[in-house]
Design a protein around this nucleic acid. Structure first.
Lengths: 200, 200
DNA sequence: CAGAAATTTTAATGGCGATTAAAATAATGC
DNA sequence: GCATTATTTTAATCGCCATTAAAATTTCTG
């Protein structure tokens, strides 16, 4: 009854649950999906979920936590691998889109943070802010090194992240389309960042 | 009891309701907002809403209908006023962002079409598709007249519309910020559309 | 295979929220 | 002011859904 996070069996099942939940939440929203919706995807009963999670609220919380982890990892890899700010932005978007529509299963978009209860909400908000900040820093770095045109990084960041976060609203599975998105989106989103030729 | 749409009083009150509902839906989603949430914004009781609307489903439906009208109007004006495809895209985004965060009150983003019942869903889906199409045509026009770089119009359209639709997730009122958004967003979103200098 | 632990199901409970009908209040025409 | 109509509220009803406890089943250990 007292499972530790390293219990393979337990952890694996909980991951399956988080993925299914993320898919549902992205599709129908937090209040719009019942625990039955989630459990049905797994061939389970709604009550079974309570073996892995204390409440529905904790389920979203964990989904968001997982999203924050993967997002943070994407940023880290991009910063590590990219030379210029532009390259880092490009790489980051590639990784982020990949975890969004790729094999590693859908990741929940954090569109319902207000639904979380105070303690969880604060924590996720903090992680979310940190992530936005990290992306804005990449943009700022690009501006500094001349690989990105001068711009309002806050606003530009919001625009780009919005385009990415909206993906689940029009993409519902389908490997072929997923490939297209991964291939095209990062380019589309970064095309507007390049400095005008005249400035170079 | 049998009000006609041209009854000033009735129509005005229903519009206020639609705006309040749009604000709530954007903030907490369809299932996440109760009729009490909406009515509270208006100093009414939840039951009072039923005098203006048959059901909660019809409320979202009307919100989406209103969104489609304003969106369609924005496209029409842009196409009418802009010379090149690029200019039309730029104008359209200006108008669209304006109705999103400006005075005319918030407009609902169509993020929960699946929640509608079949007949309404079909209708809204059709309007939504038509709107996406219209924007993609603007992009195609720009590519044809050389004002926009060659690109996948479907994917590019999705990216841009996503950035716009995501705005309500991070913007919650505030006239100052609204002004910034209106001033900057259209430029940010169209910057990536320009053909590279080398191609001109 | 026996027994213990882990996992899931069955079968309540309770509350919230959409909906409705009847009653109350406000507005309007005469 | 009176009668009629328009608008809103009050007071149910009903169903869905989160949550829980107890029972059943499966998995693991020896």
């Amino acid at each position: 009854m007292a499972q530790t996070a390293d219990d393979t069996r337990f952890a694996a099942q909980r991951d399956r649950i988080l993925k299914a939940a993320a898919r549902c939440f992205n599709e129908k929203g937090y209040s719009g999906t019942s625990l039955k919706d989630v459990s049905r995807h797994l061939g389970l009963t709604d009550a079974a979920l309570y073996y892995y999670v204390r409440s529905k609220e904790e389920l979203v919380y964990r989904c968001y936590l997982r999203a924050a982890e993967l997002g943070s990892e994407a940023v880290a890899r991009a910063v590590d691998e990219g030379q210029t700010g532009f390259e880092q932005a490009r790489l980051y978007l590639g990784y982020h889109v990949e975890i969004m529509v790729g094999e590693r299963g859908p990741v929940a978009i954090m569109s319902e943070i207000p639904s979380l209860k105070a303690p969880h909400r604060e924590e996720i908000l903090e992680l979310s802010r940190r992530h936005s900040l990290a992306f804005e820093e990449i943009l700022a770095r690009g501006i500094a090194d001349g690989s990105i045109a001068d711009c309002d990084v806050r606003m530009t960041g919001n625009a780009i992240m919005g385009a990415v976060n909206w993906i689940p609203k029009w993409f519902h599975g389908g490997t072929a389309l997923a490939g297209d998105i991964i291939a095209e989106f990062p380019d589309i989103l970064t095309r507007g960042l390049r400095p005008a030729a005249a400035d170079r």
